[in-house]
Amino acid sequence: MGMPLALFVRLNYMAAITLFLIGLHVLLGHPNLIKKVMGMNIMETGVFLFLVSIGYARHSAAPIMSPGGAESGLYANPLVSAIVLTGIVIAVSTTAYTLSLTIKLYEHCGTLDVNRLERLRR
């Protein structure tokens, strides 16, 4: 099994990692603060997608049991879902805080460009 095939059966992971990297690139490289916030969210979404992909098993159902059921079917891994839920909330808080700082800075300086902010600084 060559490298291409190995990558193909892990396509979800690849996509997630690609998202992560795109987000990271924007977050570190883009001068616009709003874009940075977007990059942050894209990056985190990539991680969430990755986590959710880990939890999936072929032909599995959502992990919600039926009442009275005694049979154990194949369900998706609920732990990663719980982790993702926590992760999302952390991402939301960070985003809210970052945005409020951005608004404040914009009101002070009238710009969202990091380069110009840095120059204002010194």
Binding site: R10, N12, A57, G69
Partner: peptide
């Protein structure tokens, strides 16, 4: 691999989490 039914994450932990019924 993605979607592997015997992935390492399928272990005693998830079994207990996925106990049938309530």
């Amino acid at each position: 691999p993605f979607g592997w039914q015997e992935a390492p994450t399928r272990n005693v932990i998830t079994d207990r989490y996925l106990a049938p019924g309530a």
